[in-house]
Simulated assay, not measured.
Amino acid sequence: MIPFVRSPEEAIHVQKIMSEEGLVREEVVQGVMAKYKWSREKVLREVKEEGLVRAAVFDYIENSEGRGYSDNGKGLKIYMMAEIPSNIILAEEFCRIFDGFSIGTNDLTQLVFGADRDSENLARSAEKYRYQANSEAIKRFISLLIDKAHNYTTSEGLKLKRKVGICGQAPSDYPEFLQFLVASGIDSISLNFDTFAKGKVNCHRTEVIENKLPEDLRKPAYELFYSYDSIISEIRIPRGRMRYLKHYLEQSSKKDDKLWDIVMRFDQIYELLNDNRESLINKIEQGHDFQKLIKNHQKILSDRTQLDALIAYSNQRWHSQRFLEDEDNEEDAYY
């Protein structure tokens, strides 16, 4: 992975330095061999004349079947970070030099908007004025790169799809941004450890919606899942507080039947919501009538009578029985 490659000329220079250390892309070796119709003697002569790395060519001769531009899994692949606007504007040129891209959203965002991400003053207004990764400008840059990389054609007319991945904070911070990436056909996504599970679910959900539903039904489907996500997130803290309080009383050999019942009802609702959400994506994947599905699930989500009562009781009970000596410990009760 090569970072901060500002121009194709610089990229060529970097690869020249790499070749001097024995790091040569498989495609370069294949190109040399194809040029001389896989003649061992002619290839080795060119290696000597043009300074290519002998070891790399020898290794290719010994381990490949000699089919031009076939994918040799053992061959060296070189990717570049796409974190400068010029990387995307000149993507076709970089496709000729590299095997793929990894988008660095943090640097790309600050260089597109001219906004220093370490500036406290700019950070306070970035959300308000949308100079952030989850913005239309960055999405357009990413869409452009994916399109150019996936449809790259060599000067000889050979189609070579270049892979595009993404790293940085944005896919972890913004579920809707991750949804955009999957829908755009990105090849790989890097997520923070604490958001991996949710991100994996979000990726699968997006793939199912984009592949199984017509365009006019995708937005209602996403909104339905967002409703489930929102309610599940909403009950996480009050449910966690009651579970913690129950545990606290059990440790003190005390019992409160009403509290025990509240915890049980919270658990039932939590499990029901998760089961319904999982069932919904499975039925969409299986091709069930989405119009019927959405009516049933909207009805389930709209009935909040019991849930609101539980949340109200949880808040009242929690604040009326302050048993924690250190309020900093309160956060531990949420999990």
Rank of each mutant, 00 (worst) to 15 (best):
M1K: 10
E9W: 09
E10H: 14
V14A: 10
I17C: 13
L23W: 15
R25Y: 08
V28W: 09
V29F: 08
R40W: 11
E41K: 14
K42I: 05
K48H: 06
K48G: 11
G51E: 02
A55C: 05
D59G: 08
G66M: 11
G68A: 15
N72Q: 12
G73F: 10
K74L: 12
G75E: 02
K77G: 07
K77W: 07
I78C: 07
I78Q: 08
Y79K: 01
M81T: 03
A82W: 02
A82G: 12
E83I: 10
P85S: 10
S86A: 15
S86D: 06
C95K: 05
C95L: 09
I97N: 00
I97M: 02
F98W: 12
G100E: 03
F101K: 06
N106H: 10
D107K: 12
T109I: 04
T109K: 06
L111K: 15
V112R: 13
D116H: 02
R117H: 06
D118A: 15
N121A: 09
A123M: 07
A126N: 04
Y129N: 00
Q132K: 08
Q132A: 11
F141W: 11
I142A: 01
S143T: 09
L144F: 13
L145E: 11
D147A: 09
H150M: 05
H150L: 08
G157S: 01
L158S: 02
L160N: 01
R162C: 13
P171H: 07
E176L: 14
E176F: 00
Q179T: 11
L181H: 06
V182P: 07
A183R: 10
G185Q: 08
N192K: 07
T195W: 05
A197D: 03
N202W: 05
C203F: 04
E207P: 04
V208A: 12
V208Y: 09
E215I: 11
E215P: 00
L217A: 03
P220Q: 03
F225P: 00
S230N: 13
S230M: 08
I232V: 09
S233H: 13
R236G: 09
G240Y: 09
Y244T: 04
Y244P: 05
Y244M: 07
L249F: 14
S253N: 15
D257T: 09
Q268T: 13
I269D: 06
E278P: 04
I281T: 04
K283W: 04
E285M: 07
G287I: 06
F290Y: 08
F290Q: 04
F290G: 02
L293P: 10
I294N: 04
H297Y: 13
H297G: 00
Q298H: 11
Q298A: 06
K299G: 05
A312C: 02
S320P: 03
F323G: 00
L324V: 12
E325L: 14
E327W: 07
E331L: 14
D332K: 14
